[in-house]
Design a protein around this nucleic acid. Structure first.
Lengths: 209, 209
DNA sequence: GATGAAACATTGACTCGGTATATGAAGTTC
DNA sequence: GAACTTCATATACCGAGTCAATGTTTCATC
């Protein structure tokens, strides 16, 4: 890697760190790109050159993980169902306390999450990125099965279980639970969530009989 | 209704009709709010007074329907499961060829859909509105069952089936099918989609045995 | 080690969506 | 018809993002 690329990387890192520090301090909407540029000692245009939009400053690092479920299905072992694959990958991520499934001890990660969930523009982007991940999963399933409509439903069901589990981790973390406490009953919760997807709603929430 | 209110309504209608005509003609992003205001013979400020954002000009009329599934569940008969209720309501809407489930003969409706799906900003809003509908459904199910996590998954599963069916209608309409043709095998398709949600993914797309 | 060509950062002016404020012109009420 | 309310307007403004032109580095080549 030449000096050029190293400088580029360093500049990008400086911008993003400056930006997030300002965001956490004063809120996403109360910091202008101009301010970020000044604080990071670059021009406003440079910020937009590196990161297409203001949201990208926060978003870039997370973006990869929205394709995780689709990747698990794509690379699954021949004897695994899609649900099996996603569940197994999810449990592995829980095991390693991966931040992408809502498990992180660091203050920074939690501040970042708070920032994202507390800012409409960022929250929207999370939803959209998640949607994209689901669509990719659906497209892959449709390739295997030939029915895009059913694949879309199946993908949404699988993603829903995964997302609900992650949200539950967030909720518990916000309630003050330690990561170890959350991990302790994660496998039970995971089993429960994916069971609903595997066995279907059937008589779920039927009032009378 | 006094003259004042009638004028207001008339102005709102004039703005929205002018706007959509321009959008359809030249694309959402290539029409500025100023142009709309000029063409509708009002000031830019007035447009924002009536419609909080540019997107609202297109969106307002559809907004109600994103709560349909939640309403079906909320008002269901005591012997119906949530899935039963949504399926029944959906079939009723198909029966009456309701545009909200993707069935419409009018050119205008199809142009509007094309506009929405072809514009990132509008497409995003559709997703978000749909998300909100799903969250409301989840909240209601959680009230009944007491488990928000499972309710979130169940709501997503139900919404997914419903949305996939609507998207399928769109696809077929885009492929040139007449509404009657689409309605003809709608009940079969509907049964199939909700069956997946009711019975679960189980061995769906398992490769080897 | 100087030179020329990419690559990159910077500048400043611009567009557009959206907001705040103050003013004016209606419609409504008495 | 005067007073009051409601609504539209003009105007000035802010921030995100784009564009075109102009520097400024880095790198390969001689």
């Amino acid at each position: 890697m030449g000096l050029r690329e190293r400088k580029k990387l360093e500049t990008a890192r400086r911008i993003v760190r400056t930006a997030i520090a300002l965001f956490v301090e004063r809120g996403f909407d109360n910091v202008s790109v101009q301010e970020i540029a000044d604080a990071a000692d670059v021009s406003k245009m440079t910020v937009f050159n590196y990161f297409g939009t203001k949201e990208d400053l926060v978003f870039r690092p997370m973006e990869d993980h929205f394709g995780d479920a689709a990747r698990a299905v794509r690379e699954r072992r021949p004897d695994e169902s899609p649900v099996d694959a996603v569940r197994r990958q999810f449990l592995e991520l829980v095991e390693t306390r991966d931040p992408s499934v809502g498990l992180a001890n660091e203050v920074f990660v939690r501040q970042l999450r708070e920032l994202v969930l507390g800012t409409p523009a960022l929250r929207d982007r999370v939803f959209l990125a998640a949607q994209k991940g689901t669509r990719d999963l659906a497209a892959h399933l449709a390739e295997e099965t030939g029915d895009l409509m059913l694949a879309t439903i199946a993908a949404a069901m699988i993603s829903a279980a995964r997302n609900a589990l992650i949200e539950e981790h967030w909720r518990r973390a916000d309630a003050g639970d330690q990561v170890d406490t959350i991990v302790a009953d994660a496998s039970e919760r995971t089993a429960c969530a994916f069971a609903l997807v595997e066995q279907g709603l059937g008589d779920y929430a039927r009032k009378a009989q």
